[in-house]
Simulated scan of single mutants.
Amino acid sequence: MKQVTPHAGLLAAVLSIGAASMFAAGWEDYSHAAHPLGLLGAYGTPHALAFNLYGFVVPGLLAAWLGWRLRDAMQERGWMARIGAWLVLLSALAFAAQGMARLDPQDLEALSGRLHAASWMLWWIAFVPGALLLAFGAGPHAGRGLLGVVSAAAAIAVLALTIFAPAWMPIAIAHRIAFVCWFGWLTFAGYALAAKPRA
């Protein structure tokens, strides 16, 4: 297998979570419990371009690179694993796209805002079936036996947090926890891919 940097998922998580924490701290009226993450990169927001770069684009591209390596690793695992890896890659690109389609607080129905929302939806809609397919198709090979279990758990968690959890917790909190679950999966997948194969 081609060399893979095991820290890519962790680096993506640190960049995105760090950017969200740092840029929100500089905005007195911003609340992680009430406001969408994309508002930190909206038009008219101080340092919006920097947040979009470090909060969405770079982490998403790191995740996409990891997804590409995962696709390579799943070539011999059957169609479920291969399709799952492609969907995970698509999910990562959709995450990055959120930073390129900025919200407009004055007009949430503007084209860029609709594209941002569509990118967010594509992020989880691609990830959930992709991770589930990986869970069933990856197999217990190459020291990566837990990858399937962790993929299934992450898929179920992201689905529950994006669809069901907003009924009993603030939607902004639910979506942030979903992002954290995704980043946790990315981190695990990076190290799992780099694990030395076992016979």
Score class of each variant (00 low, 15 high):
L89C: 11
A178S: 05
G55W: 06
I125E: 04
G38M: 08
F136E: 07
A19Y: 01
G190V: 10
P140N: 14
R71W: 12
G18M: 07
S151W: 02
P140E: 15
G67K: 07
A94T: 10
A25C: 06
Q98G: 13
Q106H: 11
G44Y: 00
A117L: 10
L159H: 00
G145V: 07
W27D: 15
R69D: 00
L93H: 11
Y30H: 01
A110V: 10
L122A: 15
V158T: 05
I83N: 08
W123L: 13
G190K: 07
W124T: 04
G137P: 01
P6Q: 12
M22K: 01
L161D: 03
Y191R: 15
G130Q: 00
A101H: 01
A126G: 06
G67H: 08
L49R: 03
S151M: 03
C181L: 04
A19W: 01
P46C: 08
V14R: 05
A63H: 07
R114T: 14
V158G: 03
W86P: 04
W124R: 02
W168Y: 15
A167R: 13
N52A: 13
G99T: 06
A160L: 15
A92M: 11
W27K: 14
Q75T: 13
Y191E: 12
A96R: 06
L15N: 06
K2M: 10
